[in-house]
Write a protein that binds this DNA or RNA. Structure first.
Lengths: 226, 226
DNA sequence: ACCATTGATGAAGAAATGATGAACTAGCCA
DNA sequence: TGGCTAGTTCATCATTTCTTCATCAATGGT
């Protein structure tokens, strides 16, 4: 689950991001509207947390522009207490929920869960990276629209890497999550490496640009189009 | 999907209507009970959003009259917080759901989705996929118009798969839902596989295009006319 | 530049999975 | 009882998938 936090206070940003990461969300942040829009247009998020009070271009402007462009990502707006008229304005623009500052982290997490659940009950849950799209419910993977057939292990492995995109994952970790119950860390040989190799081949990941090798650690799914 | 909003506050009406239109619903509004009844009797709606507090003729009166006339359109009532006794009264009259003011637009949208889904399911009890049509109330299945006779287990299995179309369903899940109460996950042998085989035969699903095998998981009903 | 370590790769044997035909059981009705 | 139907289990086969291993290539430190 990819969440983008848009707020100009670094400290608050850090706090929220940290809490969300503990809940295993993939979190990115933006300090102003331009940065936010740039990110949003370049890759999909599952949820935006948007502060109304921003320098230069405020939350409403950003939200308005998004909706105009047809981006329907759920938005949770952060407002200072008492801005009732703002609430109304935001609703018109298509915000999905509100939270008044100051708020408790528990409250925030609850709202996020509710929003994600709601938006996900209609859309299908897919993880994308570059031209690759992995649909967790149909267990289908497409590469630039073309369907790619993966074996169960390959699928789980890719799913796990995408779920933890831009984070280096150790082989141990992968084994734990993909092999689960019965995995003997000693008798695994270079099993994972082989599966990664096969994945790269099927995904036409020639230079290892999508599944990056992290020497001494393991692998990482990177959406850095380097 | 046609929705009628009945509320005497123009501002709230406008807000709700705007949000619903963004979700691609067709929305009309009425400011009082008489206008509402007139509209409802002249053309069908899929859902009514009805405020309890209305001048002249209140929400209950309107709801009561509708139900008396045999109009079963789902109704979502808006109530001021704390009107507990009203809730009870509304339920008696046949309201389908409640929402306390003030509410978030996200909440409202979720409720609407739920209500529409619910009413749609009972009105249209048949699931189709490709040339196959399964009627859940008559328990008949046709293949290109020709009736196909399925055994109870086969029917339930197909029904479950169709209900979850385009989602890979595990054998465990199928067993849970089709066998229900007494199923022992260990003594099931390859029972499900056999039923699937028979289903495929009866449905002339030669290449397994409709009931797709998802290796390592189970099966999936797919309407991907590949 | 050299060495040591780490990762990549192709191939082959082992293991798992699913499809299928057939046998077997249980319930039902004439 | 005997003949049906539905449901379940079983053995077998063809594949697919997983794992292991030997070897080769790349990388980083000194």
């Amino acid at each position: 689950m990819r969440i983008l936090i848009i707020d100009d206070e670094p400290e608050l940003r850090r706090q929220i991001a940290s809490s969300l990461r503990q809940e295993r969300y993939t979190v990115e942040t933006a300090g102003d509207g331009d940065e936010a829009l740039e990110r949003i247009f370049s890759e999909p998020y599952d949820l935006l947390i948007l502060d109304i009070m921003l320098p230069v271009r405020d939350g409403f402007a950003i939200l308005g522009q998004l909706r105009d462009e047809g981006i329907a990502t759920p938005v949770l707006m952060l407002t200072a207490r008492g801005e009732v008229e703002n609430r109304v304005k935001g609703l018109d623009l298509g915000a999905d929920d509100y939270l008044h500052k100051p708020f408790s982290m528990a409250e925030l997490l609850a709202r996020i869960r509710a929003l994600l659940r709601r938006s996900h009950e209609q859309a299908n849950p897919s993880l994308t990276i570059g031209a690759i799209c992995l649909n967790t419910s149909t267990r289908q993977v497409t590469l630039g629209g073309e369907s790619v057939s993966l074996t169960p292990k390959e699928f789980s492995l890719l799913e796990f890497l995408l779920y933890n995109r831009n984070r280096a994952i150790s082989r141990f970790n992968m084994a734990e999550h993909v092999w689960g119950d019965a995995f003997d860390p000693f008798t695994m040989s270079n099993n994972i490496d082989v599966h990664i190799k096969n994945l790269r081949k099927k995904l036409d990941d020639q230079a290892g640009r999508i599944i990056v090798t992290v020497r001494g650690i393991g692998y990482m799914a990177s959406d850095d189009q380097a």
